[in-house]
């Protein structure tokens, strides 16, 4: 297993953003769904070792990120795209990706080729020398994906990766995810259920800091059948049904 979370909790003041999550994930693409404020981003940030948990245990890539040495090893093998991508406007696309390749301790001699490959994979090959400030929102997102994948990570964490991408780019991106999923653990947090349906082998639904559903997309679809839940597509109906069920249990 590349990801093993046990009763993982994160509090911000009195707010429990993540409330005792248990999760295991190996190679493959794992979708993380949930409404706003469900705790998806906080969970991803903890897995990215950018945020320490308040309690619970976490093992990533067989290591405990609580200690500096193992945490550093995890980060060498990690790719992370946050929900809000910060960037240096004066950097070119290539410099931005190279910068993170170097920060991830990639052997410097491998960096140029890896950077070029990552940029090509996200379809920005012809914009490699363009300054980030000149890119559209979708292109910026793709540049963010490129920096996340440049080091061929074993654990790839993507928070809203398709925000701003047009449908053609989303299709390409899903193919990229599936490709990565063959050799790495990819966890995708998204609002777009069709992304989950197209690329993910497993999906978890979070609400109120907890995982309220964990299974395959087919199982999520089955939840929605005959439930009368809202939604324009089977996955949406499954999502709504699972969420409603979780909330009624919580209210009871």
């Amino acid at each position: 297993m590349n990801v093993e979370l046990t009763e993982l909790t994160r509090k911000f003041g009195r707010v429990r953003a993540v409330a005792g999550v248990n999760l295991e994930a190996g190679p493959g693409v794992f979708g993380l769904l949930g409404p706003n404020g469900a705790g998806k981003t906080s969970l991803l940030r903890m897995m990215a070792t950018a945020l320490p948990p308040t309690s619970g245990t976490m093992r990533l890539l067989g290591r405990d990120p609580g200690a500096y040495g193992p945490r550093r090893e995890i980060r060498r093998r990690l790719g992370y795209l946050p929900q809000t991508l910060g960037y240096y406007p004066g950097f070119t696309v290539a410099e931005f990706v190279e910068y993170f390749a170097l920060l991830k301790d990639m052997p410097p001699r491998q960096v140029p080729r890896a950077v070029a490959a990552a940029i090509e994979q996200v379809g920005l090959g012809d914009r490699a020398r363009a300054k980030l400030r000149t890119l559209s929102g979708g292109m910026l997102r793709r540049a963010g994906i490129a920096q996340a994948i440049v080091n061929e990570p074993e654990l790839l964490l993507l928070d809203e990766p398709t925000a701003g991408l047009d449908p053609e780019q989303r299709v390409a991106f899903r193919a990229l995810l599936r490709d990565f999923g063959q050799r790495a653990t990819v966890i995708v947090s998204t609002h777009l259920v069709e992304d989950v349906g197209a690329a993910c082998a497993e999906v978890a639904l979070m609400d109120g800091g907890r995982i309220v559903f964990h299974g395959t997309p087919a199982e999520l679809i089955a939840r929605g059948e005959g439930s009368g839940a809202a939604g324009d597509a089977p996955l949406e109906r499954g999502y709504s049904a699972a969420l409603a069920a979780a909330r009624s249990v919580a209210a009871a």
Binding site: T49, L51, R72, Y80, G86, Y88, L103, K104
Partner: peptide, 22 residues
């Protein structure tokens, strides 16, 4: 203050190279 101003904190933190080195 660049990393904080540009919202790069998490991204830079989640890399292997020590922040001091960067």
């Amino acid at each position: 203050s660049r990393d904080s101003r540009r919202g790069m904190g998490d991204l830079v933190t989640a890399t292997a190279r020590p922040r001091w080195a960067a």
